[in-house]
Amino acid sequence: MKSVKVNQNNLNDYSDIWVIGELNDGKIHPVTVELIGKGKELINNLTGKKLNVIIIGYGVQNSAEKLLHYGVDKVLYVEHNLLKSFNTDYYVKAITDLIEDRKPEIVMMGSTYTMKDIGPRIAARLGTGLISDCTELEIDSSDGKLIQTKVSFGGNLLSSAICPNNRPQMVTVKPGVMNKAERSEEASGKIELVIPKLSENDTRLNLILKEVLEKKQVNLDKAKIVVSGGRGLKEAAGFDLIRELAEVLNGEVGASRVPIEAGWIDSSHQVGQTGVTVKPDLYIACGISGAIQHQAGMYQSKYIVAINKDPNAPIFKICDYGIVGDLYEVIPQLIESIKEKRMF
Protein backbone atom coordinates (compact mmCIF):
# COMPACT_ATOMS: atom_id res chain seq x y z
CA MET A 1 0.00 0.00 0.00
CA LYS A 2 1.20 3.45 -0.91
CA SER A 3 1.76 5.15 2.36
CA VAL A 4 2.84 8.68 2.97
CA LYS A 5 5.15 8.32 5.89
CA VAL A 6 3.43 10.78 8.16
CA ASN A 7 5.63 11.49 11.09
CA GLN A 8 3.66 11.55 14.29
CA ASN A 9 6.38 11.75 16.89
CA ASN A 10 6.00 13.83 19.94
CA LEU A 11 5.85 17.37 18.66
CA ASN A 12 7.76 18.50 21.73
CA ASP A 13 10.84 16.69 20.50
CA TYR A 14 11.22 19.42 17.90
CA SER A 15 12.82 22.74 18.60
CA ASP A 16 14.84 25.44 16.90
CA ILE A 17 14.40 27.33 13.70
CA TRP A 18 16.54 26.44 10.77
CA VAL A 19 17.45 28.38 7.71
CA ILE A 20 18.73 26.24 4.88
CA GLY A 21 21.28 28.62 3.42
CA GLU A 22 22.25 28.78 -0.18
CA LEU A 23 25.58 29.45 -1.77
CA ASN A 24 26.18 30.59 -5.28
CA ASP A 25 29.77 30.15 -6.36
CA GLY A 26 30.83 30.46 -2.74
CA LYS A 27 28.83 33.64 -2.28
CA ILE A 28 25.96 33.68 0.16
CA HIS A 29 22.59 34.07 -1.59
CA PRO A 30 20.74 37.22 -0.45
CA VAL A 31 17.65 35.21 0.42
CA THR A 32 19.65 33.39 3.09
CA VAL A 33 20.28 36.67 4.91
CA GLU A 34 16.61 37.61 4.47
CA LEU A 35 15.57 34.32 6.03
CA ILE A 36 17.94 34.92 8.94
CA GLY A 37 16.30 38.31 9.37
CA LYS A 38 12.85 36.69 9.51
CA GLY A 39 14.11 33.86 11.70
CA LYS A 40 15.36 36.32 14.30
CA GLU A 41 11.94 37.96 14.34
CA LEU A 42 10.23 34.60 14.80
CA ILE A 43 12.36 33.39 17.71
CA ASN A 44 11.54 36.58 19.56
CA ASN A 45 8.03 35.15 19.81
CA LEU A 46 9.14 31.70 20.87
CA THR A 47 10.85 30.95 24.14
CA GLY A 48 13.91 28.80 24.38
CA LYS A 49 14.35 28.26 20.64
CA LYS A 50 17.52 28.80 18.74
CA LEU A 51 18.17 30.03 15.22
CA ASN A 52 20.53 27.88 13.18
CA VAL A 53 21.71 28.13 9.62
CA ILE A 54 22.58 25.07 7.59
CA ILE A 55 24.79 25.28 4.54
CA ILE A 56 25.86 22.41 2.40
CA GLY A 57 28.62 21.99 -0.10
CA TYR A 58 32.32 21.30 -0.19
CA GLY A 59 34.84 23.73 1.24
CA VAL A 60 32.16 25.92 2.75
CA GLN A 61 33.69 26.60 6.15
CA ASN A 62 34.55 30.12 5.06
CA SER A 63 30.96 30.88 4.20
CA ALA A 64 29.86 29.36 7.49
CA GLU A 65 32.12 31.76 9.33
CA LYS A 66 30.79 34.71 7.37
CA LEU A 67 27.27 33.83 8.46
CA LEU A 68 28.24 34.21 12.13
CA HIS A 69 28.12 37.96 11.58
CA TYR A 70 24.33 37.93 11.33
CA GLY A 71 23.51 37.03 14.90
CA VAL A 72 22.56 33.37 14.56
CA ASP A 73 23.10 30.84 17.31
CA LYS A 74 24.83 28.25 15.21
CA VAL A 75 25.92 27.55 11.67
CA LEU A 76 26.05 23.90 10.71
CA TYR A 77 28.05 23.31 7.59
CA VAL A 78 27.52 20.02 5.88
CA GLU A 79 30.66 19.10 3.99
CA HIS A 80 31.19 16.34 1.48
CA ASN A 81 32.97 16.17 -1.84
CA LEU A 82 29.80 14.73 -3.36
CA LEU A 83 28.03 17.97 -2.43
CA LYS A 84 30.34 20.08 -4.55
CA SER A 85 27.72 20.56 -7.26
CA PHE A 86 23.97 20.50 -7.10
CA ASN A 87 22.51 17.01 -7.08
CA THR A 88 18.93 16.40 -5.98
CA ASP A 89 19.62 12.97 -4.52
CA TYR A 90 22.66 13.97 -2.44
CA TYR A 91 21.19 17.25 -1.26
CA VAL A 92 17.90 15.68 -0.25
CA LYS A 93 19.60 12.88 1.62
CA ALA A 94 22.09 15.12 3.44
CA ILE A 95 19.42 17.55 4.61
CA THR A 96 16.78 14.95 5.43
CA ASP A 97 19.22 12.91 7.51
CA LEU A 98 20.24 16.00 9.42
CA ILE A 99 16.63 17.02 10.07
CA GLU A 100 15.77 13.53 11.30
CA ASP A 101 18.78 13.61 13.57
CA ARG A 102 18.41 17.11 15.05
CA LYS A 103 14.65 17.63 14.84
CA PRO A 104 14.16 21.34 14.10
CA GLU A 105 10.69 22.78 14.60
CA ILE A 106 10.75 25.12 11.60
CA VAL A 107 12.79 24.80 8.41
CA MET A 108 12.96 27.81 6.11
CA MET A 109 14.33 27.84 2.59
CA GLY A 110 14.43 30.43 -0.17
CA SER A 111 12.04 29.98 -3.11
CA THR A 112 14.87 29.40 -5.53
CA TYR A 113 14.90 26.78 -8.25
CA THR A 114 17.32 24.71 -6.19
CA MET A 115 15.21 24.74 -3.05
CA LYS A 116 11.98 24.22 -4.99
CA ASP A 117 13.64 21.13 -6.40
CA ILE A 118 14.70 19.58 -3.12
CA GLY A 119 12.28 21.14 -0.60
CA PRO A 120 9.13 19.24 -1.60
CA ARG A 121 11.11 16.02 -1.81
CA ILE A 122 12.56 16.47 1.66
CA ALA A 123 9.07 17.18 3.02
CA ALA A 124 7.72 14.06 1.35
CA ARG A 125 10.53 11.93 2.73
CA LEU A 126 9.89 13.29 6.21
CA GLY A 127 6.14 13.04 5.77
CA THR A 128 5.58 16.62 6.79
CA GLY A 129 4.07 19.75 5.29
CA LEU A 130 5.71 22.39 3.18
CA ILE A 131 4.17 25.67 2.16
CA SER A 132 5.90 27.18 -0.82
CA ASP A 133 6.50 30.72 -2.00
CA CYS A 134 5.42 32.38 1.22
CA THR A 135 5.45 36.12 1.57
CA GLU A 136 4.56 36.36 5.26
CA LEU A 137 5.37 34.25 8.28
CA GLU A 138 4.23 34.70 11.84
CA ILE A 139 3.90 32.72 15.01
CA ASP A 140 0.40 32.13 16.33
CA SER A 141 0.76 33.50 19.85
CA SER A 142 -1.86 31.08 21.22
CA ASP A 143 -0.14 27.85 20.29
CA GLY A 144 3.24 28.76 18.85
CA LYS A 145 2.41 27.37 15.41
CA LEU A 146 3.80 28.93 12.28
CA ILE A 147 1.23 30.74 10.14
CA GLN A 148 2.45 30.76 6.58
CA THR A 149 0.92 33.15 4.09
CA LYS A 150 1.21 33.13 0.35
CA VAL A 151 -0.36 34.67 -2.70
CA SER A 152 -2.06 32.29 -5.11
CA PHE A 153 -4.73 32.25 -7.81
CA GLY A 154 -2.71 34.41 -10.14
CA GLY A 155 -2.16 36.99 -7.42
CA ASN A 156 -5.84 37.24 -6.55
CA LEU A 157 -5.99 35.19 -3.39
CA LEU A 158 -4.05 35.54 -0.18
CA SER A 159 -4.12 32.37 1.86
CA SER A 160 -2.61 31.32 5.14
CA ALA A 161 -1.85 27.75 6.06
CA ILE A 162 -0.57 25.82 9.03
CA CYS A 163 0.98 22.42 9.51
CA PRO A 164 -0.62 21.47 12.82
CA ASN A 165 0.40 17.90 13.55
CA ASN A 166 3.68 17.29 11.81
CA ARG A 167 7.18 18.52 12.27
CA PRO A 168 9.20 20.22 11.11
CA GLN A 169 7.02 22.96 9.67
CA MET A 170 8.68 23.60 6.35
CA VAL A 171 8.44 26.68 4.23
CA THR A 172 9.99 28.25 1.16
CA VAL A 173 10.00 32.04 1.08
CA LYS A 174 10.09 34.34 -1.92
CA PRO A 175 13.42 36.10 -2.30
CA GLY A 176 13.36 39.86 -1.80
CA VAL A 177 10.37 39.88 0.55
CA MET A 178 11.80 39.62 4.04
CA ASN A 179 14.11 42.21 5.53
CA LYS A 180 17.74 41.25 5.63
CA ALA A 181 19.45 40.62 8.94
CA GLU A 182 21.94 43.32 9.83
CA ARG A 183 25.56 42.42 9.55
CA SER A 184 27.69 43.18 12.58
CA GLU A 185 31.47 43.36 12.69
CA GLU A 186 31.52 40.96 15.61
CA ALA A 187 31.00 37.31 14.93
CA SER A 188 28.85 35.45 17.41
CA GLY A 189 27.51 31.92 17.75
CA LYS A 190 29.20 28.64 16.95
CA ILE A 191 29.99 26.76 13.82
CA GLU A 192 29.73 23.02 13.58
CA LEU A 193 30.98 20.69 10.89
CA VAL A 194 28.61 17.91 9.87
CA ILE A 195 29.85 15.07 7.71
CA PRO A 196 26.90 13.42 6.02
CA LYS A 197 26.78 9.72 5.23
CA LEU A 198 26.86 9.81 1.45
CA SER A 199 28.16 7.47 -1.17
CA GLU A 200 28.00 7.41 -4.91
CA ASN A 201 25.29 4.75 -4.65
CA ASP A 202 22.97 7.38 -3.25
CA THR A 203 22.38 9.05 -6.58
CA ARG A 204 20.93 8.12 -9.94
CA LEU A 205 22.05 11.35 -11.51
CA ASN A 206 25.29 11.72 -13.36
CA LEU A 207 26.32 15.34 -13.88
CA ILE A 208 27.95 15.70 -17.25
CA LEU A 209 28.01 19.45 -17.69
CA LYS A 210 27.62 22.51 -15.51
CA GLU A 211 27.61 25.95 -17.06
CA VAL A 212 26.98 29.46 -15.91
CA LEU A 213 23.86 30.84 -17.58
CA GLU A 214 24.11 33.70 -19.97
CA LYS A 215 21.19 36.09 -19.84
CA LYS A 216 17.97 34.22 -20.37
CA GLN A 217 16.18 34.58 -23.66
CA VAL A 218 12.60 35.20 -22.66
CA ASN A 219 9.92 36.41 -25.03
CA LEU A 220 8.29 39.70 -24.27
CA ASP A 221 4.85 38.15 -24.05
CA LYS A 222 5.97 35.57 -21.53
CA ALA A 223 8.09 37.90 -19.41
CA LYS A 224 7.21 38.31 -15.75
CA ILE A 225 8.63 41.82 -15.73
CA VAL A 226 8.64 44.29 -18.60
CA VAL A 227 10.41 47.64 -18.58
CA SER A 228 9.31 49.86 -21.45
CA GLY A 229 10.63 53.14 -22.78
CA GLY A 230 8.80 55.81 -24.75
CA ARG A 231 9.11 59.26 -26.21
CA GLY A 232 10.42 60.59 -22.90
CA LEU A 233 13.73 58.81 -23.44
CA LYS A 234 14.47 61.43 -26.09
CA GLU A 235 17.19 59.37 -27.79
CA ALA A 236 18.26 55.84 -28.68
CA ALA A 237 20.88 55.85 -25.93
CA GLY A 238 18.03 56.06 -23.41
CA PHE A 239 17.39 52.38 -23.97
CA ASP A 240 20.75 51.59 -22.39
CA LEU A 241 19.21 52.71 -19.12
CA ILE A 242 16.00 50.80 -19.80
CA ARG A 243 18.02 47.68 -20.58
CA GLU A 244 20.03 48.08 -17.41
CA LEU A 245 16.87 48.27 -15.31
CA ALA A 246 15.37 45.31 -17.15
CA GLU A 247 18.54 43.33 -16.56
CA VAL A 248 18.59 44.01 -12.83
CA LEU A 249 14.97 42.90 -12.66
CA ASN A 250 15.57 39.92 -14.91
CA GLY A 251 12.89 41.32 -17.18
CA GLU A 252 12.44 42.18 -20.81
CA VAL A 253 12.61 45.46 -22.66
CA GLY A 254 9.49 46.90 -24.29
CA ALA A 255 8.76 50.14 -26.10
CA SER A 256 5.88 52.34 -27.17
CA ARG A 257 5.41 53.46 -30.75
CA VAL A 258 7.56 56.57 -30.84
CA PRO A 259 10.93 54.89 -30.20
CA ILE A 260 10.13 52.19 -32.74
CA GLU A 261 9.32 54.71 -35.44
CA ALA A 262 12.33 56.80 -34.52
CA GLY A 263 14.45 53.68 -34.94
CA TRP A 264 15.77 53.77 -31.37
CA ILE A 265 14.90 50.11 -30.91
CA ASP A 266 13.77 47.16 -32.98
CA SER A 267 10.04 46.79 -33.62
CA SER A 268 10.00 43.36 -31.96
CA HIS A 269 9.97 45.30 -28.69
CA GLN A 270 6.74 47.16 -29.39
CA VAL A 271 4.00 46.82 -26.81
CA GLY A 272 0.52 47.95 -27.74
CA GLN A 273 -2.36 47.53 -30.10
CA THR A 274 0.24 47.15 -32.82
CA GLY A 275 2.93 44.94 -31.38
CA VAL A 276 2.84 42.57 -28.47
CA THR A 277 0.25 42.35 -25.74
CA VAL A 278 1.89 41.71 -22.42
CA LYS A 279 0.52 40.61 -19.07
CA PRO A 280 3.53 40.61 -16.79
CA ASP A 281 3.45 40.74 -13.01
CA LEU A 282 5.15 44.11 -13.21
CA TYR A 283 5.14 46.64 -16.04
CA ILE A 284 7.31 49.72 -15.70
CA ALA A 285 6.48 52.45 -18.21
CA CYS A 286 9.30 54.96 -18.49
CA GLY A 287 8.67 58.17 -20.40
CA ILE A 288 5.50 56.71 -21.89
CA SER A 289 2.49 58.98 -21.94
CA GLY A 290 0.09 56.08 -22.19
CA ALA A 291 -1.78 56.58 -25.43
CA ILE A 292 -4.74 54.27 -25.63
CA GLN A 293 -3.11 52.03 -28.21
CA HIS A 294 -0.23 51.45 -25.83
CA GLN A 295 -2.62 50.79 -22.96
CA ALA A 296 -4.34 48.12 -25.01
CA GLY A 297 -1.12 46.11 -24.97
CA MET A 298 -0.35 46.35 -21.27
CA TYR A 299 -3.36 47.24 -19.13
CA GLN A 300 -3.76 43.64 -18.03
CA SER A 301 -0.40 43.71 -16.26
CA LYS A 302 -0.75 42.83 -12.61
CA TYR A 303 1.11 45.91 -11.41
CA ILE A 304 1.87 49.00 -13.44
CA VAL A 305 4.48 51.56 -12.50
CA ALA A 306 4.76 54.81 -14.43
CA ILE A 307 7.65 57.24 -14.49
CA ASN A 308 6.95 60.42 -16.42
CA LYS A 309 7.73 64.12 -16.24
CA ASP A 310 4.23 65.17 -17.22
CA PRO A 311 1.83 64.89 -14.26
CA ASN A 312 -1.11 64.92 -16.69
CA ALA A 313 0.09 61.93 -18.71
CA PRO A 314 -2.78 59.45 -19.07
CA ILE A 315 -0.50 56.64 -17.90
CA PHE A 316 -0.84 57.92 -14.34
CA LYS A 317 -4.55 57.10 -14.44
CA ILE A 318 -3.98 53.43 -15.04
CA CYS A 319 -0.88 52.82 -12.95
CA ASP A 320 -0.58 51.42 -9.45
CA TYR A 321 2.42 53.57 -8.61
CA GLY A 322 3.55 56.69 -10.36
CA ILE A 323 6.55 58.93 -10.08
CA VAL A 324 6.32 62.38 -11.57
CA GLY A 325 9.91 63.17 -12.37
CA ASP A 326 12.85 62.89 -14.71
CA LEU A 327 13.40 59.28 -15.63
CA TYR A 328 17.11 59.90 -16.03
CA GLU A 329 17.20 60.75 -12.32
CA VAL A 330 14.72 58.15 -11.14
CA ILE A 331 15.92 55.04 -12.93
CA PRO A 332 19.59 55.07 -11.89
CA GLN A 333 18.53 55.39 -8.26
CA LEU A 334 15.91 52.70 -8.72
CA ILE A 335 18.55 50.37 -10.16
CA GLU A 336 20.81 51.07 -7.22
CA SER A 337 18.06 50.48 -4.66
CA ILE A 338 17.05 47.22 -6.30
CA LYS A 339 20.65 46.04 -6.37
CA GLU A 340 20.94 46.87 -2.68
CA LYS A 341 17.92 44.76 -1.95
CA ARG A 342 19.29 41.87 -3.90
CA MET A 343 22.97 41.75 -2.98
CA PHE A 344 25.05 42.53 -0.07
Partner: peptide, 17 residues
Protein backbone atom coordinates in the same frame (compact mmCIF):
# COMPACT_ATOMS: atom_id res chain seq x y z
CA UNK B 1 -0.49 17.56 6.68
CA UNK B 2 -1.13 21.21 5.92
CA UNK B 3 -4.41 23.04 6.51
CA UNK B 4 -5.64 26.25 5.05
CA UNK B 5 -5.95 28.61 7.97
CA UNK B 6 -7.71 31.45 6.27
CA UNK B 7 -7.85 33.06 2.89
CA UNK B 8 -9.01 36.31 1.46
CA UNK B 9 -9.02 38.11 -1.85
CA UNK B 10 -6.13 40.40 -2.45
CA UNK B 11 -6.92 43.98 -3.20
CA UNK B 12 -6.65 44.29 -6.94
CA UNK B 13 -8.55 47.46 -7.48
CA UNK B 14 -6.07 49.69 -9.26
CA UNK B 15 -5.67 52.79 -7.13
CA UNK B 16 -3.09 55.05 -8.65
CA UNK B 17 -0.69 56.17 -5.99
Amino acid sequence: VTNIYESCLTHINRVST
